[in-house]
């Protein structure tokens, strides 16, 4: 295994008096897809959200241990969470486009870094009139980032003629790919996905799985999923969580082939029926 990009050591998370995660330690290698599986309430989503400090907004949360990303302990109280989140992107369970145009959705992450959006649509009153060929040839950083991200998210061909349309006019699967495009527009190192396919049909799910397999050459991907086949299809490593503890972590082959722990075997086999 190459040098890990994320090292987790003795991570504890408490919500008030409830322990959500207890003593979680493992390493995640770069440019791999790591699947996190487990029953609901097992702590896998909590783990994912501690990687970009999205738990900070909950009032009673307490965290202990260390998570080292790129040599820096991100649980340190002096950590700049805004900068952290630019390095660690996140896609949520349900597609969450903003009520803006397709173009503006993807451009948002760059805009908030202070880069001027050349295609700013004011209250969706002004339309993006530019042709997609022109946009592809543009040397404006936002134009370039939008085109690149939409292409990487395998969405460009489907939306290049309606970049000015509201993101809500896209289908559910397209919306979720738009959210992936939005997340990768700012070029994070790590991409976190929290059950990204749970509200999608099988075809869209397959499309996103293909997309993730293509993206892993540029990004380190962590995906929480309750769909074991999905984890088996795309993950390189798999972590199995149960009641707040990481029971087992290994390659997908190990976990699905012959897991070392009985608990893991029961879960994997039980879910296979």
């Amino acid at each position: 295994m190459t040098a890990p990009i994320i090292s987790v050591r003795s991570l504890d998370v408490h919500y008030g008096s409830v322990t959500a995660l207890h003593d979680v330690s493992f390493d995640i290698a770069p440019n791999e897809i790591t699947g996190l599986i487990g029953a609901s309430g097992s702590g896998k989503s909590t783990f994912l959200r501690s990687l970009n400090r999205m738990l900070d907004h909950l009032p009673t949360v307490r965290m202990g241990g260390t998570i080292t990303i790129g040599g820096e302990n991100i649980l340190h109280e002096k950590t700049d969470v805004v900068r952290l989140r630019r390095r660690v992107g996140m896609v949520f369970q349900n597609p969450t486009p903003f009520p803006k145009s397709v173009f503006d959705n993807v451009a948002y992450g760059l805009e908030i870094q202070g880069i001027r959006n050349p295609r700013k649509s004011f209250l969706s009153l002004t339309r993006l009139r530019i042709q997609h060929q022109e946009l592809e040839a543009s040397d404006d950083p936002i134009d370039q980032a939008v085109v690149r991200s939409l292409k990487e998210a395998a969405l460009w061909e489907e939306v290049k003629h309606r970049l000015h349309h509201s993101a809500y006019r896209l289908s559910g699967g397209q919306q979720q790919r738009l959210c992936i495009a939005r997340a990768i527009a700012i070029r994070p190192d790590i991409l976190l996905l929290d059950e990204p396919c749970s509200s999608l049909d099988p075809l869209s799910t397959r499309c996103i799985e293909q997309l993730l397999l293509g993206l892993k050459k540029d990004y380190t991907i962590l995906i929480v999923t309750h769909n074991l086949q999905q984890a088996r299809r795309i993950a390189d490593h798999v972590g199995f969580f149960h009641t707040g503890e990481l029971v087992e972590f290994g390659t997908a082959k190990e976990i699905f082939g012959g897991p070392g722990k009985t608990l893991t075997r029961e879960y994997v086999e039980g879910a296979f029926g």
């Binding site: 999205m54 805004v82 989140r85 949520f92 948002y108 908030i112 939005r182 700012i186």
Partner: peptide, 13 residues
């Protein structure tokens, strides 16, 4: 709430 989370996850203040 998803709007808030998505925006913050993109590194917005």
């Amino acid at each position: 709430r998803a709007f808030r989370e998505s925006s913050q996850a993109l590194g917005a203040t």
